Computed example of a mutant assay.
Amino acid sequence: MATRIVTLPGDGIGPEILAPTVDLLQRFVADVEVEEHVFGGASIDAHGTALTDDVLAACKRADAVLLAAVGGPKWDTTDATKPRPEQGLLGLRKGLGLYANLRPVRPLPALYDASPLRREIIDGTDLLVVRELTGGIYFGEKTRTETTASDLCAYSVEEIERIARTAFEAARKTARHKVSSVDKANVLETSRLWRQTVVALHEAEFSDVTLEHVLVDNAAMQLISNPRSFDVIVTENLFGDILSDEAAMLTGSIGMLPSASLGRRSDPPTPGLFEPVHGSAPDIAGQGVANPLAMFLSLALLLRHGLALESEALALESAVDKALDQGLRTRDLGGTASTAEATAAVLAALG
C-alpha cells in the first residue's frame, strides 16, 4: 500500500519551500501518494475558513502531514468574528489530537558566526523542547467585553502526564538523560499541578532520568546565558511557544528550525504534523530567495517519527549539514543563495 502524505503549502513562501521538499520526499519514499490541500490564509480566501472539514478528514486519513507556513498581514485582525490563518493550526492540532510538539535545537558549527550569541556560549548545545500543544491558555475559555478580557488556562493530570512521558522517553535516548520541567509554580495553580504531576510520574516510572524544575523566567535567561545546561525541556503550551522560538535563535536563524507535532502512538496511530517553525515571510514571497532548510529538516523528522525511516532521516540531515559546511548560505544566513541553489546544494550533498 502506498504511503499517503497530505501537503499543506499554506501562505507566503510556503509553496516555494514545499515544492522542493516534496521532490526530496519522493526521492526517499518510492511508493508515495502526495495529496495537496489549501490551508490557512489561502483557505480563508477560498472557503472562508482556515481549515475545512474536508481537509481535516484528509489529514486524518494520511500517514503524515507536511505543512509549510501560514499567515500574513492580509489576514491580521483583532475582530474575534473574523477567521485567522492560525485558527487552522489550532484546529488541526486539536482535530488530530497532536498534543506533543518536538523542536530539536542543535546549532551547527558552520553557522556559529550567524548566531547573535558568542560561539563559546552555543558551542556543544544540543537540546529538545517538548511543548504541550492542545491544552492551556490557547484552548481555554475566552471572554471579552468593551473594557475587559480573559483567557482561561486549564490543565488536567492526564494532559500533563502524557506530555511529561513524551519528554522522559525522549531523554532516555540522549546521552545525558536529563529533563528540565519549566513552569511558574511560584505563582500559578496550573504550574503547581504541573510540577506535582511531573514529580509523581518521574518517581513512578522514570527514576533513571534526571529531573530538574526551572521557573520559566529563569529558563528564558538560561537559554541565552547557558544553553548547554539543557538536554530535554518540557513545558506547557504558552511557555513552550515562547521558549522554543527563543531557542531557535541559537541556530542563527529561525529559518533553520524544524518541528514535529505528534499524538497517539497506539494502534491506529495518529498521523503527525511536520512543519518549520518560521512564518510565511510575505515580504520575500515569490522572489525565490526563501531558506528551505527548515522545511527539509522537517521532512527528516517526518521520515523519522512519521514513517520510522531513521537511516533516511539521518541521510537528509547529514546532507543539510554537509551543504552548510561547504559554504551554502541563504540570505537569512548572511549569504546570497536562492531557494533553488540551496536545494541543489543539498541534493549534491546527498550524492
Rank of each mutant, 00 (worst) to 15 (best):
M1I: 00
P20T: 13
Q26L: 00
R27Y: 12
F28D: 08
E36W: 00
D45G: 13
C59R: 03
L67H: 05
A69H: 04
V70Y: 04
G72C: 08
P85V: 10
E86F: 09
G88S: 10
P104T: 08
P107A: 04
P109L: 12
S115L: 04
S115E: 03
L128C: 00
V129A: 11
R131E: 09
G136L: 07
Y138T: 06
T145P: 11
S150G: 15
S150F: 11
D151P: 07
D151N: 12
L152H: 10
S156H: 05
E161H: 09
I163D: 03
I163P: 01
R165N: 04
R165K: 14
A167L: 03
F168L: 13
A171C: 08
K173F: 04
V179D: 09
V179T: 04
S180R: 02
S181P: 11
V182F: 02
V182Q: 00
D183S: 15
N186Q: 10
N186I: 03
L188A: 01
E189W: 02
T190L: 04
E203I: 05
L215M: 14
D217R: 05
M221H: 13
L223T: 09
S225Y: 09
D231R: 05
N237P: 11
D245A: 13
L250S: 07
I254Q: 03
G255I: 09
G255P: 08
A260Q: 02
R265M: 01
D283H: 15
G288Y: 11
V289K: 14
V289G: 06
L293N: 08
A294K: 05
L297N: 07
S298M: 14
H305C: 00
L316W: 05
R331T: 14
D332Y: 03
E341K: 14
A344V: 08
L347K: 08
A348D: 14
